[in-house]
């Protein structure tokens, strides 16, 4: 039987492919980071769907952790592109463009 989780999964996979195309093409580095962040959100959704597809409730914990890691990862990459390092920003005020 063609079930609803399979349908959602297929849509998510199609969309992930589109996101990947943008990540590869993306003219600026920010397009790539945006694609990465969006890809992460879809991964979270996909893990949640897989949880129901496979009937394994442990997967939701993974999705939960992945949602947080995705956010931290995006911020870390952004900070790295902005400052060139991941240390605190207090002693590098001069780097700030604002």
């Amino acid at each position: 039987m063609f079930d609803m989780f399979g349908a959602a999964m297929a849509a998510l996979l199609v969309c992930m492919v589109m996101t990947m195309i943008r990540a590869v093409k993306g003219p600026t580095v920010f397009d790539r980071i945006l694609a990465l962040n969006s890809f992460g959100t879809k991964t979270v959704l996909m893990i949640a769907v897989v949880n129901f597809l496979a009937g394994r409730p442990e997967f939701l914990d993974l999705a939960l952790v992945y949602a947080l890691m995705n956010f931290i990862g995006t911020i870390a990459v952004l900070k790295f592109t902005h400052f060139g390092h991941l240390a605190g920003i207090e002693d590098h005020e001069s780097d700030e463009v604002s």
Partner: peptide, 17 residues
Amino acid sequence: LLISGSFFVIVGGIGLL
């Protein structure tokens, strides 16, 4: 709900491209 959610997800992907 799942189908309309998938629709919006795909619209997001199309928009991204």
